[in-house]
Design a protein around this nucleic acid. Structure first.
Lengths: 209, 209
DNA sequence: GTCTATAGGGCGATAGAC
DNA sequence: GTCTATCGCCCTATAGAC
């Protein structure tokens, strides 16, 4: 992608699609809205992406490749620099999502899109995400398993699921908590990430009855 | 599913709408699909509900009234029969959602619909839900606050948000965990609820740094 | 209360000129 | 690569017969 001095038609379509999909959902967004917001011709979507479904996949790929690489790199660092500690591993999982949510250029919309992807049960998209990014969760499962020797794998995966659900909600700003006017949106989300790390660390260490 | 012709037109529309909204979203479901599945005429929606938006509200009201009453009743029971205990309060919040998810007649679809309501950020629907059911969360916040005296209100509300996110995901069957063929769907969800109660109880009690 | 019919408009996708 | 024009379809909502 580099540093374009001007954005191509393809990039403008991706940015507009991301924003509109986050706002109105996949089914609720028409390609006409997308091309209108991107200030390109309606026929350009078909030319560059072939179909609406493939456009959705590409919107995800653009962000997920970055976030996935971040998570795995930070996991490696956490295991090396803080061996035996739970919270750095959780931070490696949570912080890249936070960074995306803080991203000035569309990342916040994308995080809401992840919540939609869960909710919409779009089978084609789920398969795409599972095929391309499923290995990340297995890596984190392995790392956490090493630190929680008394925890059976099944219970660990339940707890990882709870973490993923809570993270998606917290980063998507769906919650009950109204940001006080005094706090910036960035500070609000950072607080959420720190709180979630503590909450999840305690939850993961809960004794099994 | 058989066509329940002994139900009224209005009830058949509500049931079909709930199922299809959960499956395809609000924007992704047409009133034609609804009336076709309900085996009623297309004009019946407008006659009985006035508009698609009002149909959505009524689909929510039908289930939320029941779940809300369950939660508050179980909360009262928990405070009376198990004073000073955290997990019964969490169970009072979680079990009614579980019961809905186990409901043989549409409840499972409805739980997925809650996740959609969060994700879709439908302002009209959010106001409807907040106006009619917001007091439940305040009640639970009060009850938990009494048991966690060292916890400031802000942190408590963050943690309640994490619980709500995790619960919505777990009950909606969005997670990584694949149900083993040996376990029934009901047993799988019951397990999720029990696991979440332990996870959340530990998370709520985490020390604040 | 339920029906048929249709108004009036947005949709995804494509053909073909430039 | 981008444009205009258009096809054929599906949509919500309503009018009016029964």
């Amino acid at each position: 992608m580099g540093k374009p001095t001007h954005f191509s038609t393809k990039e403008r379509i991706l940015a507009a699609a991301e924003e509109l999909f986050a706002q109105h959902g996949f089914a609720g967004t028409s390609l006409r809205q997308v091309t209108s917001q991107a200030a390109v011709n309606i026929a350009a979507v078909n030319y560059h992406f072939g179909s609406k479904e493939n456009l959705i996949n590409e919107v995800f790929r653009r962000r997920m490749d970055v976030m996935t690489a971040d998570r795995l790199r930070q996991l490696e660092t956490a295991l090396r620099d803080h061996p035996g500690q739970l919270e750095p591993i959780l931070a490696a999982f949570i912080d890249p999502a936070l960074a995306l949510a803080q991203d000035r250029n569309g990342g916040a919309a994308f995080v809401r899109l992840i919540a939609r992807a869960y909710a919409e049960h779009n089978e084609s998209l789920r398969r795409f995400l599972s095929d391309h990014y499923g290995h990340v969760l297995r890596e984190f499962g392995k790392a956490l398993s090493g630190l929680l020797p008394g925890l059976d794998k099944e219970t660990l995966y339940w707890r990882l699921d709870f973490l993923a659900g809570a993270l998606t909600y917290a980063m998507s700003d769906f919650g009950l908590i109204k940001r006080p006017a005094s706090a910036s949106e960035a500070a609000h989300r950072s607080r959420a990430a720190r709180e979630l790390i503590r909450f999840a660390a305690a939850g993961l260490q809960a004794e099994t009855k």
